[in-house]
Simulated scan of single mutants.
Amino acid sequence: MDVTLHLAQEPAADELLGRSPLAALVGMLLDQQVPMEWAFAGPHTIAVRLGADDLDAQEIAAYDPEAFAALLATKPAVHRYPGSMAKRIQQLCQYLVEHYEGDPTAIWQDAATGDELLKRLNDLPGFGKQKAQIFLALLGKQLGVRPKGWREAAGDYGAPKAYRSVADITGPESLRKVRAHKQELKAAAKASSTKTTKAMKTTKATKATKK
């Protein structure tokens, strides 16, 4: 795994993501409740603060929890919630040490099918189905990991040129398309929520009138 990714939109951070499976996993883990670029720049920031040129699962798993949380919280913070994310990163690394001898590539190296790989990713601490599917799509689309049925296992995220997630981002233009798609989803969710709220108020008003 040594390719060029464009998720952090910072050359040094993206270079690390492209050559380090653990950095890519940690970036995916951080990718929630903060802008994508902030999340995927996080692994490089952590590596620099550890005085290393890569992340090491064994080292992070054994790191003093309070010291690791402080390392993430140092301004500029690695995440909006550095304390909880520090805990999740350590849990992820501890899981990798326990189940894969600290080697993230062992998750997908011998996975025979997309479904098998999806299950392994879904079993990772901090990875729900959606996050697992997005990372599976990233592996297949940009990192050359393509077990049989990987697109189907990745769901909508596996579709070619879907522009639904980080798996489709290869530069500024695709980033804009993915952002536009996410904004559409948020707008639709907000409209649905507003409609539901209005319906509930109408139902309450009707019941009150009947009383």
Rank of each mutant, 00 (worst) to 15 (best):
P21W: 14
P21N: 10
A23C: 05
A23F: 02
A23Q: 00
A24Y: 05
L25P: 12
V26C: 05
V26R: 06
L30M: 15
L30F: 08
L30P: 06
Q32M: 03
Q32Y: 01
Q33R: 14
Q33V: 10
Q33H: 09
V34L: 01
M36F: 02
W38Q: 14
A39C: 10
A41P: 00
A41C: 12
G42Q: 06
P43S: 07
P43Q: 04
H44R: 09
H44Y: 13
T45K: 02
I46M: 14
A47P: 08
A47L: 10
L50R: 11
D53L: 01
D54L: 09
D56Y: 04
D56Q: 07
A57Q: 03
A57D: 13
Q58P: 01
Q58D: 14
Q58W: 13
Q58I: 07
Q58S: 13
E59D: 10
I60Y: 00
A61D: 12
A61M: 11
Y63K: 11
Y63S: 10
P65Y: 10
E66L: 13
A67R: 12
F68N: 07
A69K: 13
A70T: 14
L71V: 12
L72T: 02
L72R: 07
A73I: 12
A73Y: 01
T74G: 00
T74F: 00
K75M: 05
K75E: 13
K75D: 08
K75N: 06
K75T: 11
K75L: 02
A77R: 10
A77M: 05
A77H: 03
V78E: 03
V78Q: 02
V78P: 00
R80N: 04
R80Y: 01
Y81Q: 14
P82N: 06
P82E: 10
G83P: 02
S84M: 15
M85H: 11
K87Q: 15
K87I: 15
R88N: 10
R88D: 03
I89W: 03
I89A: 04
I89S: 07
Q90Y: 03
Q91P: 05
L92M: 07
C93E: 07
Q94G: 15
L96G: 04
V97M: 11
V97D: 00
V97C: 11
E98F: 01
E101V: 07
E101L: 05
E101C: 04
G102S: 04
D103N: 14
P104T: 14
P104L: 08
T105F: 09
A106W: 12
A106R: 15
W108V: 11
W108T: 12
Q109N: 14
D110V: 00
D110T: 09
A112G: 14
A112M: 07
T113I: 07
T113D: 08
T113F: 00
G114Y: 04
G114C: 08
E116L: 09
L117M: 13
R120D: 08
L121W: 07
N122W: 12
D123Q: 13
L124K: 00
L124S: 08
G126Q: 11
F127G: 08
G128V: 11
K129H: 09
K129A: 13
Q130Y: 12
Q130I: 15
Q130C: 08
Q130M: 12
K131R: 15
K131H: 04
K131M: 14
A132S: 15
Q133P: 10
I134T: 02
I134E: 09
I134K: 01
I134D: 09
I134R: 00
F135D: 12
A137F: 11
A137M: 10
